[in-house]
Amino acid sequence: MKYSPKRRSLHGRIKAALNSDIFGGSLVLGATILALILANSPLAPAYQALRDFRLGIPQLHLSLSVGQWASDGLLTIFFFVVGLELKEEFVIGRLRNPRTALLPITAACGGVLMPALLYVLVNHSGGQEALQGWATPTATDIAFSVALLALVGRRLPTALRVFLLTLAVVDDFIAIIIIAAVYTEEVNLVWLALAFIPLIIFAFLLRRGIHAWWILLPLALLTWGLTHASDIHPTIAGAALGFTVPIVVTTPSYSATKEMTQYFIRRWSPISTLVAVPVFAFFSAGVTIGGFSGLGEALRDPVALGIIIGLVLGKPLGILSTTFLLTHIPSLELAPALRWRHLIGMSFVAGIGFTVSLLVSELSFGVGSTVGSHATIGVLAGSLLAGLIGAAILAPQRH
Rank of each mutant, 00 (worst) to 15 (best):
A285Y: 12
T227R: 04
G318D: 13
I210A: 06
S284E: 05
W268A: 10
L305V: 07
A212I: 05
W224H: 04
L217Y: 15
T235K: 05
T223L: 03
L221G: 01
I289H: 08
A239M: 06
T273N: 15
A229Q: 14
F202R: 01
S269R: 13
L216K: 02
H211K: 11
Y254V: 06
S255C: 10
A281N: 04
I319V: 11
I197A: 04
T244N: 07
S284Y: 03
G291L: 05
Q262H: 13
I271N: 00
T223P: 04
D301F: 09
S293N: 07
L216A: 06
R266P: 00
A276W: 12
A212K: 10
H211T: 03
S284H: 09
I308W: 01
A239W: 06
Y254K: 15
G242D: 11
L222P: 09
F292M: 14
R266A: 12
I309Y: 02
Q262W: 00
W224P: 09
L199H: 09
F283K: 05
R267M: 07
L205K: 13
A281W: 01
P234S: 02
W213L: 14
G294Q: 11
G294T: 12
D231T: 14
I200S: 15
L222G: 12
F282N: 05
A229N: 09
L221S: 02
F243N: 00
Q262Y: 05
S293V: 10
R300Y: 10
P234G: 01
V249G: 04
I201A: 15
E297M: 02
P302C: 07
W268I: 10
V275G: 05
P302S: 07
G238T: 07
I265A: 11
G290K: 03
F243S: 00
L313P: 02
I307H: 02
Y263M: 11
L299P: 03
F196T: 03
P218R: 01
I197S: 12
S230D: 10
R267E: 09
S284G: 06
A237T: 03
P316S: 08
V245A: 10
A298F: 03
